[in-house]
Computed example of a mutant assay.
Amino acid sequence: MSLNNTFKNKLLAGQRQLGGWSLSGSSTIAEALAHLDYDYLVLDLEHGPSNTQDLLQLLRAVEQTATQPVVRMASHDPIAIKQALDLGAMNLYFPFVENVAEAEAIVQAAFYPPAGRRGFAKMHRASRYGIRATYVEEANDAICLMAQLESPEALMQAVDIGKVPGISAVFIGPGDLSAALGLHGQVNHPEVRQLAADTVARCREAGIAVGTVMPSPADAVWAFKVGFSYVSIANDVANLLSKCREQLADARQGLGEAL
């Protein structure tokens, strides 16, 4: 029962990966999305309602499929990191990483000694309750830590952050980046796109993979074309509302004055 993190393997091999995003916190929706054959599915603990106990059910829902779960943590809290890893999460996003010191602290919290300070326990879900006997020896190599860069200042340090030992990739958060530029929610604004594209170019030259999330398939295609390695499309709540809004408008138009 050795660890095999296919998401990280593809990331380090330079393969493109197309992901989904689950904001709802529903394990049923996460399970359904995972069966759609995304390369990975982000389970959002930062802006969604999910907590650590919910994460257990979300992981169980996704892990029965070929889609790889990626957990967006709510913070850099070492206890929360330890709990997510002990539950079996292997791919973690971290919001608002602003500098090298913060990235180094994340690695310290996530890695077992001597590379870090993650607390040891033999009996947890990640080790399959002790049945996966080699978990501790394999965990540091299998875990994939990704630093979210969400301000112009952080993007300027993208290469230095991405080179921190233990950080596998960086992630550009377009929503918060647009807000930091005074363009709240305008993720496709030319200024936002240019800053993101410039950062991707510098990171690719340094051999650092960069990911993001885009609101539409067309935007995801743009992201891949400028060099992003892994891209999620929208999220389950946004997609649900979009489809329901479309159906509601179509029904009202068809009913006309009869409504």
Rank of each mutant, 00 (worst) to 15 (best):
Q64H: 09
P49G: 01
G256C: 08
D86H: 12
A251R: 10
N239A: 06
V192Q: 11
N239T: 05
Q194I: 00
Q253D: 15
A179W: 04
A109R: 03
N188K: 12
G116Y: 07
H184Q: 10
M123I: 14
A61G: 03
A158N: 10
A154P: 07
I172E: 07
Q148R: 10
A110G: 03
T212V: 07
K163M: 14
I167C: 10
V231W: 08
H35P: 00
A80E: 15
P190M: 05
E46C: 01
A133C: 06
L33E: 06
V62A: 13
Q15P: 04
I208Q: 04
Q17M: 15
T212C: 07
L41Y: 04
D141Q: 12
L149I: 05
N5V: 09
G207I: 01
A32R: 00
V210D: 02
G130P: 09
M123D: 13
L3D: 04
R128C: 00
R245P: 03
D77M: 03
G14A: 05
T67A: 09
R118D: 05
S22M: 01
V62S: 14
L45W: 11
G20I: 06
Q194P: 02
L59Y: 08
I131M: 12
I233L: 08
F7S: 04
A196P: 09
R125W: 07
L11K: 01
P78I: 08
G116V: 11
A66T: 12
Q83C: 05
L41S: 11
L58D: 11
A110F: 08
E246P: 00
V213S: 13
E46R: 10
N140S: 02
S24W: 02
R16H: 09
V200H: 12
S232I: 03
A126L: 04
A258E: 13
T212K: 03
A13R: 12
R118K: 09
N91E: 08
L11H: 00
R128K: 04
G162E: 09
A61F: 06
H189T: 06
I131T: 14
Y112H: 10
L248Q: 15
G48P: 00
A154T: 03
E137P: 02
E191C: 00
L36K: 10
Q17S: 14
R128Y: 02
P190T: 03
A84Q: 09
L181H: 02
D176W: 11
R72A: 04
Y40D: 00
I208R: 06
L45F: 10
E63W: 08
P174C: 15
R125P: 11
A196I: 01
A121D: 07
L11T: 00
L259G: 06
N235E: 01
Q83R: 15
A13K: 08
L45N: 12
R60S: 05
H76K: 14
T28H: 12
C144S: 07
Q64R: 15
L241N: 14
G48L: 08
S22K: 04
V237P: 06
S242Q: 15
Q15L: 01
I131L: 11
A196L: 06
V136R: 07
